[in-house]
Amino acid sequence: MEVVDPQQLGMFTEGELMSVGMDTFIHRIDSTEVIYQPRRKRAKLIGKYLMGDLLGEGSYGKVKEVLDSETLCRRAVKILKKKKLRRIPNGEANVKKEIQLLRRLRHKNVIQLVDVLYNEEKQKMYMVMEYCVCGMQEMLDSVPEKRFPVCQAHGYFCQLIDGLEYLHSQGIVHKDIKPGNLLLTTGGTLKISDLGVAEALHPFAADDTCRTSQGSPAFQPPEIANGLDTFSGFKVDIWSAGVTLYNITTGLYPFEGDNIYKLFENIGKGSYAIPGDCGPPLSDLLKGMLEYEPAKRFSIRQIRQHSWFRKKHPPAEAPVPIPPSPDTKDRWRSMTVVPYLEDLHGADEDEDLFDIEDDIIYTQDFTVPGQVPEEEASHNGQRRGLPKAVCMNGTEAAQLSTKSRAEGRAPNPARKACSASSKIRRLSACKQQ
């Protein structure tokens, strides 16, 4: 084909351009004929944790799935940006308080904090938690009735009371019990989460009196709706648990309003109706937990002794299953770290194939690490110290990083047969305790 000078094309009309061969290198194709290559998922490591896909996002930050490269346990990490926390009232204080509380709590029905990582340079905090497959609110939203069968609701409620009793025994008032803060594992274990607005009572406090509340409006008791200066913290949790039980068994809320002012007005009056299909035992329990006067409201001991709580409820309806993943529609909620794991395991070791967030990740503290002497050669063979940054567990980050890069360049065919977990650990520049 004859090559045409581009400067001469402006002298031709459209018809003349076609005659000189423009149609031979300008093609129009339908979008259905285009085959897009999927974007390669680059592996990203935060300390010893391999990052997966997004699980959810809230006002405080994002939650992603991660894999512990040492234990191969599935975890969830809450990623918090200090810049964003400053824009939220009491944001930083709530996060630090939640970390302090979770560090000393150990119960099967309370979410466990596994690790805390802090990135000084990017001003990011990573709260590594045990993995929960789904939230209770997500399960309720997945069915038209917006409720659980009585047998399933009873099982979840009993676990909620177990976890709540443990928190109260530790002198902690949750203040925000609701389905949105109750998570579930694949085995059906309920976990109380989000202790950001919780309050730890003084060890020598005479009672459970509280003065502040930041919980969700629909789950607040009349004493808070009416603006009382002080109130019983434990009875606030009992009320919120009662509203939660009402919601998961009926699909409704005892109090509603077009806006928060109308909602608080209705809560302050204390008038509500219980659907007739709840039955006398459940209705009596709800009335005891939603008692207007805090002094007359049920205690956890009274809830445990109630006939509806103690009764064994046979399954009359099919239980609400864990819904498919909202993004991938995966009904099994498979591990989202698998594509990243395959990338590390299947590809040659190259620095361009993975990302390490930083050479140094500070753990379990908000301060910069200490310094240790770096050896410097002298005339008599002895070495003197220069400062060298280290990880919180004493690992020399720069030395590990250099060693990792040197190993990656060394030709050794046997290394390709290593397991995925050992490869992740070798790529991680800074081991965590």
Rank of each mutant, 00 (worst) to 15 (best):
S19G: 15
A389K: 15
D68N: 10
L190R: 01
D343I: 14
V372K: 15
N94E: 04
L72D: 13
W308V: 00
L113G: 01
R333H: 06
K175W: 02
V368S: 07
L201T: 08
L140P: 00
P369C: 10
H174I: 03
P369Q: 11
P326L: 10
R103W: 03
M335F: 10
V4R: 10
S299L: 03
P339G: 03
G385D: 10
P294S: 03
L285E: 00
D350R: 15
S31H: 00
L54M: 07
M136S: 01
D359A: 11
P221G: 06
L183H: 11
K82F: 05
I99F: 15
K81P: 06
L341P: 13
L290R: 00
V116W: 02
V390Y: 11
K269N: 09
K423N: 13
P149E: 13
K84V: 01
Y340F: 06
F354V: 10
K329W: 03
I46M: 05
M289W: 00
P89S: 04
Y246R: 01
P413R: 12
E145A: 05
Y131W: 03
D229G: 06
L353C: 08
S299D: 08
R301P: 06
E92W: 06
A406L: 14
E57W: 04
F234W: 12
Q364G: 03
N94G: 05
C151W: 05
S422Q: 14
S401A: 13
G180A: 10
A206W: 01
L286G: 00
T249E: 00
D348Y: 04
D330M: 14
P319F: 12
L290W: 03
G227S: 12
T367K: 02
A377P: 11
E376C: 12
G408L: 14
D23H: 09
R331S: 10
F264E: 14
K269I: 09
Q302R: 13
A218C: 05
N109H: 00
G56P: 01
C134S: 12
C278Q: 03
I248R: 00
L285H: 00
D327N: 10
H202I: 10
L102Q: 12
G196R: 00
A377Y: 12
T13V: 14
R331G: 11
R106M: 14
P324H: 12
C132T: 13
M289C: 04
K83T: 01
E349L: 12
E16F: 11
K108F: 06
R103K: 08
L184M: 02
G370E: 11
A406M: 03
L400K: 04
P222V: 04
I424R: 13
S334W: 03
M127H: 15
R42K: 09
G61E: 01
A429Y: 12
V110T: 13
G288V: 02
R211F: 15
H379F: 07
V66E: 01
T186H: 02
P411V: 15
K62N: 14
D115P: 02
A377S: 09
G52L: 11
D141E: 05
C418A: 15
E121F: 04
A295W: 10
D176R: 00
T230Q: 11
Y166G: 09
V390A: 13
K82H: 07
G227D: 07
G56H: 01
Q364F: 09
K124I: 13
G15A: 05
R297W: 00
D343H: 03
P411W: 03
C134T: 15
K82Q: 15
M139G: 03
A398V: 06
E317G: 14
E120P: 11
N393F: 13
D68W: 05
D208C: 09
G91S: 04
V63N: 07
G276R: 10
C73S: 11
T363V: 08
Y261P: 07
E65N: 06
C278M: 11
D359W: 06
D330R: 12
Y131C: 02
C158R: 12
N226R: 13
K423Q: 03
L400F: 12
S31Q: 11
I322Y: 05
P324R: 08
G188A: 05
E374Y: 09
M289F: 00
D359C: 07
L290A: 01
K175T: 06
E375K: 14
H379I: 13
V338P: 13
L184A: 03
Y118H: 07
N259C: 07
P179V: 02
H379W: 04
Q112R: 03
Q364T: 12
P149D: 03
S59A: 08
L113V: 02
G346E: 10
D176V: 01
V236W: 06
N412C: 07
K235L: 09
I356R: 08
S232V: 04
E98Y: 01
V66G: 04
T32R: 10
A43I: 08
V372G: 07
A377T: 14
Y246P: 00
P321W: 14
D68R: 06
E351V: 10
P373D: 14
Q371R: 13
D359I: 04
Y126M: 03
R425E: 09
Y166W: 04
E138K: 14
A318V: 07
D237N: 10
E57K: 07
R39Q: 01
V128G: 01
T189Y: 03
A377G: 06
L286N: 01
L140T: 01
V116C: 02
T212D: 12
K416T: 11
Y36N: 14
P217A: 09
T71D: 12
M125H: 04
P144W: 15
G346H: 15
Y126T: 00
S325R: 14
T13L: 05
H107L: 01
V173H: 02
L55R: 08
P217S: 02
T328V: 10
E145M: 10
P89A: 07
C418G: 15
G251E: 02
T212E: 15
G135H: 15
E120H: 15
D365I: 12
I300M: 05
A206E: 01
G135I: 15
A76H: 02
Q364P: 11
I238V: 08
C134R: 13
Q220L: 03
L113H: 04
P323Q: 02
D208G: 11
L201A: 14
S142C: 08
R301I: 15
N259Y: 07
S378L: 04
G381P: 15
A410V: 10
E16L: 07
M335E: 10
N412F: 09
T336G: 07
H107I: 00
V337D: 08
Y36C: 07
P222C: 04
A206G: 07
M11T: 09
S19A: 05
T402K: 10
I274R: 04
P203A: 05
D176C: 00
G288F: 02
R415S: 13
H379P: 12
P315C: 08
V95L: 05
L54T: 12
M136G: 00
F264G: 06
C418R: 13
Q433H: 08
K329G: 10
A206D: 06
T244Y: 01
F264A: 08
Y131V: 04
I111Y: 05
H202S: 08
V95N: 15
S216V: 03
M125Q: 15
I260G: 07
I303C: 02
Y49I: 09
D350S: 02
Q305C: 09
P38F: 10
G270M: 06
G180P: 04
L9Y: 14
A273L: 05
T395R: 14
Q7G: 03
M51V: 03
I356L: 08
L386R: 12
E33V: 02
K262E: 10
G155A: 09
V95F: 05
G163S: 02
A318Q: 15
K81R: 08
P387T: 14
L50H: 06
H202E: 12
G227R: 03
F255L: 02
H313V: 02
K269V: 09
H168P: 01
E57G: 07
P275E: 02
I111M: 05
M129R: 07
S334Q: 13
V320Y: 13
R409F: 04
L184R: 02
D277I: 12
L201F: 04
W239I: 00
V372F: 07
R297A: 01
I361M: 07
V337L: 05
G15S: 09
E265G: 05
P222N: 15
T402L: 09
L167C: 07
P217R: 01
G15C: 07
M11C: 15
H345A: 14
E165K: 05
G91P: 15
N119K: 08
Y253D: 04
F264T: 05
P38R: 05
W239E: 00
Q137R: 03
R331H: 00
Q302H: 07
I260D: 08
R28L: 03
S421F: 07
G233F: 12
L140Q: 13
A218M: 10
H168W: 02
G385H: 14
F148H: 00
C132R: 00
A429C: 15
I360K: 10
P321A: 05
V372W: 07
H379E: 03
V320F: 06
L195G: 05
C73L: 08
S283W: 04
D53P: 13
G268M: 02
P413N: 15
P324D: 14
Q159G: 07
R211I: 04
G135L: 13
P38Y: 01
A429S: 09
L245Q: 02
G257V: 09
R103Y: 07
I224L: 09
K416F: 03
